[in-house]
Amino acid sequence: MAETVELGGSGPGPGPGGDGLLDPDFMQRLEQLEIISRKIYASRQKGERRSKRKGESAEFADYRNYVVGDDLRHIDWNIYARLDRLYLKLFLEEEDLNITVLLDVSKSMDVGEPSKALYAKRVAAAMAYIGLCNYDRVNLYAYNDAIANHVSGLRSRKMLPKVIQFLEETPIQGKSHFAAAARQFASRHTQKGIVLVLSDFLDKGGFDQGLRYLLGRQFDIYVLQTLSPQEVTPELAGDLKLVDCEDEDVAEITVSKTLLDRYKANLEAYCESLRSYCSQRGINYLLATTDHPFETLVLNYLRQRGLLR
């Protein structure tokens, strides 16, 4: 499957999945899936998911005593005939689920081969498609040092072109500042639901502050850290002047095995600290390198992690 994915857009012309973001076969497989939230949220609109509230679905939930003001249509007249008392018949409410993808579009996402930005966008597209297929509310937020662009409240698969358009048209630019963006997002996005953060988390401002804002809103948070193979195993040699693509900070290095070992150890420690932070706070964390086929990521790993079913 992975071989059929055109990362650079040199494949067949734009289809429903956009230019290389999703291909039809994969979309067909995505339609079988649905996104699972570990939490049950109340929503404002009827959907296909069980709500905390009792509502008007066909599924019986409970009885309660009638109080003045209740809808007379929900009184169980059979009980009243037998017991001469008024009971109200309660049914389960089915509501929709808010699925929000928080996509890092800072410049660092564009460094490396295969591109982290494209990889993240494809994951975002897949998640959005799954959500749309299940009549969930899909929201997409692109951020760098603030929310750069967003599209929200998408339902039904008819909205897929909008998703694709959003992903394709959002430029990769700017410095990343996850904390600022998360704070802005948390204040703007008040609906509960699943939040999937797609980022490399190579942010000099750190990740904990941003995640804390999201935790404060009680979202069901999933973190997918994407790194390019060059970041995991740098193929550098000689005397180099490393320039940060975002803030043009410079690091002069003379590559040696010691230095490379030290870098790898640092990266490992950084990823471990992120994973540890997430697990302690009930956040689901997953690390993916872009040389790993994203179809496998979506169909296998995300399912194993319980985000999909």
Binding site: S108, G112, D200, L202, D239, L240, L242, V243, C245, E252
Partner: peptide
């Protein structure tokens, strides 16, 4: 030194 652009220093 030769310049190389990296995602982050």
């Amino acid at each position: 030194r030769q310049e190389r652009t990296v995602s982050s220093t």
